[in-house]
Each structure stands twice: as C-alpha cells, then as structure tokens.
Design a protein around this nucleic acid. Structure first.
Length: 487
RNA sequence: GGCGGCUUGGCCAAGUGGUAAGGCGACGGCCUGCAAAGCCGUUAUUCUCCAGUUCAAAUCUGGAAGCCGCCUCCA
C-alpha cells in the first residue's frame, strides 16, 4: 500500500511518486522572524516534521529545506520601533524559534537557509527573469514580475487574473504594467537595510527568496512544497510564476497546505487580541501534550485550541502512558523484541495505513487508543499469568508503540519518567499555593491512611483521602500498595 | 463580488460507495471496605436539508440553508 498525498494543485489525493526514485526533496515556508511564534506556527512546523519523518521511515532519502525570512518590511518596522538593528531582531527570533521547536521535539530540517544569506542568488534569479522577458525594472529601482508573461497564473489558487483585476482590491500602482504584477526587488529608503544590485540599492521582495533558495538547494523542480493554507495565494502562486516562468518546467509536484489553529472557535487575529504564543502554551502544558494536540486533527482541517481540548488530550496521553507503565511493570521490555528489528504487529500495520492516507495523524492516534484498549483487556484477562503467546503479542504492541512514537514524536518517555515529571509539575503548582505539602508529608498521610485502613477505620482513611483530593492528589490502591498522582 | 472549504452522537472527531473509528463525558456492571485506575456493556437505524445516480451513498451528482477561510501582513 503506497503513500497518498492530497495535492492542492489538483485538489485531490494522489499516489506519491517522487521525481527521482528513492529521494524526496521538500521545501516548507518558515517564519518571518520579526516576532514571537504563535501556536499556528507550531502546527505548521510540527505537521511537516511528522511528514518529514514519515518520508524517511518509508525509506526515502529526504532533503528538507525550511527557510527563515529575515529581510522584510515588518522587520524594518520593528527595527524602527525598537531602535534595534534588523540583524539583532532576526537573530533573537530565530533563536527563540529554535528553542521552542526543540521543546516541541521538532527535528531540524536538512537546511535552514536565510534570505539574507542568498542575496546574490536572488539577484541572479531576478536578472534571469528580466533577460527572459518575464520581469521588468522601472524608474526608481523597483523590479516587478509580469503576470502577463505567465499564462498559467492562478492555477494553484483557482483564480482567474481577469476576475482579480476586476476585483480592484489591489492598490493601483502606476509603475506596474498590470496591477497584479508583484515586487521582486524594491529600492531602499534612507536608513533601511540594502544590498547593491543592478537596479540600485534595495532588497528582495517576499516571494522571490523561496524560488531562489529552493532552486539553490533542490533544483529547478522538486517534489513537495508546504506551508500554511494562507500562503496558497499569493505567495505560492507567485513562487510558481517565478520559477516556472524561468525554467519552463513544473516547479513543484505536490503542494501540501496545513489548516489553521483557531482559539476558542475564533480565528487568531491581532484585532481579537487572541494571538496565542508558543511560549504561553508551553508554560501551561507539557510540550508533549501540545504536540499531541497539534496532531489530533487531520492536518488540513482547522483545529480549535481551548482549555477543554488540551485537558482532553492530556487525559488521553495519561491513558497511553498508564498502559505503557503496566507493560513495564510486567517486565515486557525484556521480551527481546526491539524496535526496528523488522518485527511489526497489527498496530503498526494500521498506523502505517493511516499515515499513508495523506498523513492522517488523527486516525493514527485512534489506532494507538485501540491498541491500548486491546492491550489492557489482555492484561486484565491474564491476571499476571502471561503465557508465551501473550507476552509476545504485548511485546509486539510495545515495540510498535515505540516505533510510531519516533514518527509522531510523542510517547517517547519512559512511563516512569512521564509520571515523575507530572508529579514534579504538580508539586511545583502545589508549592505555589498556600497550603503547600511536601512529598514527605504526602507520603506520611498515605502511611497514616494505610494504618487506618488496616484498623478498618475507614472514616479516618476517607478523611485523609479527601484531604489529599483537595490538593488534587488522587490515590490508587493496588495489590502492591497505594500509589498517588496528580489529577 | 471572485475563489475555496466545512456541516457526522452531549462535546471533540476519523471516515477509502459495501451498511457509522477513536477520544472526552454520562449511565449500568465487574473489581474495591468505599473509591480511584483498568475492564465490560449502554449512549448516531443514521451523517444539515431536498432531489438524483446506484443492487448499495456520510462518501458520487445537482440544488437549498448555515458556518468559515482566502482575495491585504499572516502558519
């Protein structure tokens, strides 16, 4: 069963066949580094991180390029506001981006080029476009791409240039031959960063960097190009125009676009004041919960961020780790079945089926929950007496979860470490409140309760349990004694 | 105005023309001193509505309603 990918270009799922057998070249639009990244950036990055991992898992040699836009009007504006040099600003936000994406367990792409590192490539690209009659420079130092020189313009976004011209929401610029023509190079105003070019001191327009850098690292045409849905028009439409006009061949075979993150069912926007930054979310929830949340819906659908949805995800994650802990306690780690030794079970088959169906991580997670339920049932029925067949089945399940954890980038901790971290977080929260209790005090209360239970003083035992409950501590009495955790 | 998308149980949500995954919640049961956790069972005769194609439709076609996104910086 092969991989199927939804291609924005044709509006349907297509069998994935790379241009060169065994190789995948992908380019994803990264952030413009002028501000802190929000949860929407995180979604795009995490989604393409999983896509990247899945391509590799399928055996492809993947070259993954994700750029930083580090020259842009918004950066200049920020610089004017803060008095900081543009380079200082971009460096700051690139570092921040890396720190946050590392926290979300995102693998670094093969190459992370910056626009400012490729100005000569960009200038060369523009010059070639002019030579081919696809672009023109005007007095004052602007260079525009000529829409009329590219008859396929509008294919990706399903737009018709005639209609758009009639739409008249584009400010008319007298210097443009066609109002839809877009900027390739713009002259620098005094005080703005600039580079020398055949058209005078200036800087590149937004769209050209992706065409120039993808050409530099991936060639004239490549397999996959991704980004948020909002980039379809005009950004990706313009990239196609630039690259295909110059090289006369298909730029990208598969276009992949992720949906938005809404906040409490509203679009994130500056006017609503609901821009939710990654660092805020990281302060509230474990990174693993955030990553699982971002993968809990299909990547093309919108996903709604709210307290409720995060709580649900968190409960689900607990459930998976609780199952893994049960397996650990039975010593199933030592069954001899190791991740990646070629043995896979039915869970892996189902998981792979979901991932091959347009990277359906939502369905993939459902497969995991199915397996957890099935595994728990087997463990209950066995009541500790595992025969060989059963331990093999559970061991296979465990190794399948390990394997898929490498793709999703979640379920990677040891259950003990996961619950320990959760306890630590709970203790920290508790300490922040007035009625703080230390672990020793908690253990002491549990011991007192055990004694009360032994003496069949259940009233006293329940009082202690209620007291702990008020601190969000839940007790679990098992055959091996009482354990506790935070809600 | 142009283009695109969405509408599936109380909530979230996956759905490949073959008879509705999964999660959260709720209720009943097993277990427990009682709980918790875990397990079992119940919770959509039906997928916004109307028509059509088909042996068969949540899935395909046409129409209606509602919601949303893009067209301006945007992941």
């Amino acid at each position: 069963m092969g991989l199927k990918v939804y291609n924005t270009l044709n509006g349907r799922k297509e069998e994935f066949v790379p241009l060169t057998e065994g190789r995948v070249k992908m380019y994803v639009c990264g952030p413009t580094v002028y501000d802190t990244s929000h949860i929407g950036h995180a979604r795009s990055v995490v989604v393409f991180d999983v896509i990247f991992r899945w391509f590799e898992r399928l055996g492809y040699e993947v070259t993954y390029v994700r750029n930083f836009t580090d020259v842009d009007d918004k950066i200049i504006k920020k610089s004017n506001e803060t008095g900081e040099d543009c380079a200082v600003i971009t460096e700051k936000y690139i570092n921040e981006f890396h720190v946050e994406m590392d926290a979300l367990n995102v693998r670094r792409p093969t190459i992370e080029p910056r626009a400012t590192g490729h100005i000569t490539h960009i200038i060369d690209f523009i010059r070639m476009l002019i030579e081919k009659g696809k672009a023109y420079s005007v007095e004052g130092g602007d260079v525009y791409f000529s829409i009329d020189a590219f008859k396929e313009y509008g294919r990706l976004s399903g737009r018709n240039p005639e209609d758009m011209r009639a739409g008249a929401r584009i400010a008319v610029d007298e210097k443009k031959r066609n109002p839809l023509d877009f900027t390739l190079w713009k002259p620098a105003k005094p005080g703005e960063p600039f580079w020398e070019s055949p058209w005078g001191k200036g800087r590149p327009g937004w769209h050209i960097e992706c065409s120039a850098m993808s050409y530099e690292y991936l060639g004239e045409g490549f397999d996959v190009h991704g980004g948020g849905k909002d980039l379809i028009f005009p950004h990706h439409e313009n990239e196609i125009a630039q690259s295909e006009a110059l090289f006369g061949r298909q730029f990208v075979k598969y276009w992949i676009h992720n949906g938005f993150v809404d906040i409490n069912n509203e679009k994130m926007s500056k006017s609503l004041g609901n821009f939710t930054m990654i660092k805020e979310v990281l302060a509230k929830y474990p990174a693993e919960v955030i990553r699982m949340f971002l993968l809990s819906n299909h990547y093309r659908s919108p996903i709604d961020y709210s307290e409720d949805s995060m709580r649900e995800i968190s409960l689900g994650l607990d459930r998976v780790y609780a199952f893994l802990e049960r397996l650990d306690q039975l010593g199933l780690d030592q069954t001899g079945i190791k991740t990646g030794d070629g043995h896979t079970g039915s869970l892996w088959e189902e998981f792979a089926g979901a991932m091959n169906d347009d990277f359906n991580s939502a369905r993939a997670l459902a497969c995991v929950f199915d397996a957890v339920k099935k595994g728990n049932r087997l463990l209950d029925e066995a009541k500790g007496g595992l025969d060989e067949a059963l331990s093999k089945e559970l061991g296979l399940m465990r190794s399948d979860i390990r394997s898929l954890a490498e793709i999703l980038g979640i379920f990677l901790l040891s259950p003990a470490a996961y619950f320990a971290a959760k306890k630590e977080k709970g203790m920290a929260d508790l300490a922040a409140e007035s009625g703080a209790a230390t672990p020793a005090e908690i253990e002491d209360l549990i011991r007192q309760r055990a004694e009360a239970r032994k003496a069949r003083d259940f009233k006293r035992a329940d009082e202690i349990r209620d007291q702990l409950q008020s601190m969000k501590i839940v007790l679990e009495d098992g055959p091996g004694g009482t354990t506790w955790r935070f809600e």
